[in-house]
């Protein structure tokens, strides 16, 4: 990892970003285990208000199977609310969300598709150890009955997020960034068709951010999983995104490829992606 940073430190004008240069991905027990059926998402006219506060004001967004979509937006723009609707935790006031053509609120939806989410708050189960958190899905659904195989997948997942050997630790003693990474491992183990990241890198140092960025890219190249990433990190955005959606005050300002967003004429969009300093 340090080697990587040294090699990539000298970059064009800006301070060295950890995202310069791309390592080729390494195989792992978990990545070999994952076999998803990539599914697209189609959001139409999604509206949601809390009381008389209209949070989502008609969102339309199409996500192709296997694509990485990054949703950018200010704090309070409604990103987390949007993700909660996509995964079916909240009901919209109007509009629909379809995954591979099927409504996410269909009672049988979960039988056909697995969506996983990394919560902004991590939402680890505090009464379970890190390893139990990550392995819970496999155990509860009896997907794998062999405990040693579960342990193998769990430790591989933890290694992928840089937390190898932390199985026995309780979540309460982890830092915020470590919790987020455990939550990421827990979501991956579900073998989802679509994975939703709510700010996967907030609170992580640049090296760890890079690890998560690489993980997202590996997931695309090796498993072709559909990924929806909410983040504030512009470097991460351009590192992983196939498509970027800029969300502002409950509306989507622009959707486009990274190049289209970079060259956008919309002042509000430019404001987002402009370098924060200098």
């Amino acid at each position: 990892m340090e080697q990587k940073l040294d090699n990539n430190n000298v970059t064009n004008g800006r301070l060295g970003s950890v995202f310069e240069g791309r390592e080729k991905c390494t195989g792992s027990v978990l990545l070999d285990y994952l076999k998803c059926a990539p599914a697209g998402v189609c959001i139409k006219g999604l509206e949601r208000s809390f009381g008389n506060h209209l949070v989502l004001k008609g969102i339309d967004l199409d996500i192709d199977p296997g694509e990485i979509v990054v949703i950018l937006g200010k704090s309070g723009a409604g990103k987390s609310v949007l993700l909660r609707h996509i995964i079916g935790l909240d009901n919209p006031d109007a509009g629909s969300i379809r995954v591979a053509g099927e409504d996410v609120h269909n009672p049988d939806f979960s039988k056909h598709h697995v969506l996983a989410m990394v919560f902004q708050s991590s939402a680890l189960f505090n009464s379970l150890s890190v390893g139990e958190n990550v392995g819970l899905y496999l155990k509860e659904h009896k997907i794998i009955n062999d405990d040693s195989r579960i342990n193998e997948i769990v430790s591989s997942a933890l290694e992928l997020v840089g937390l190898g050997g932390k199985e026995e630790v309780m979540p309460s003693v982890l830092s915020g960034g470590m919790k987020r990474r455990v939550a990421t491992a827990r979501a991956l183990v579900m073998n989802p068709d679509i994975i939703l990241f709510d700010e996967p890198t907030s609170g992580l140092d640049p090296m760890m951010t890079r690890t998560i960025g690489d993980l997202i890219c590996d997931l695309k190249s090796q498993v072709e999983i559909t990924q929806i990433v909410v983040t504030h990190d512009i470097d991460l955005t351009f590192y992983v995104a196939d498509k970027i959606a800029v969300l502002s005050e409950g509306r989507i300002l622009q959707v486009g490829s990274p190049d289209e967003i970079r060259n956008s004429r919309d002042a509000a969009v430019q404001e987002f992606i402009a370098p924060q300093f200098g």
Binding site: R84, I87, L89, S110, V114, L115, A116, M117, F119, S121, A123, L124, F125, N126, L136, Y137, E140, H141, M190
Partner: peptide, 16 residues
């Protein structure tokens, strides 16, 4: 506390 800290939501997303 599981409800407040979104653990119940996490259970639901894991189809538990």
């Amino acid at each position: 506390s599981m409800s407040v800290y979104e653990e119940i939501d996490a259970l639901k997303t894991m189809d538990i």
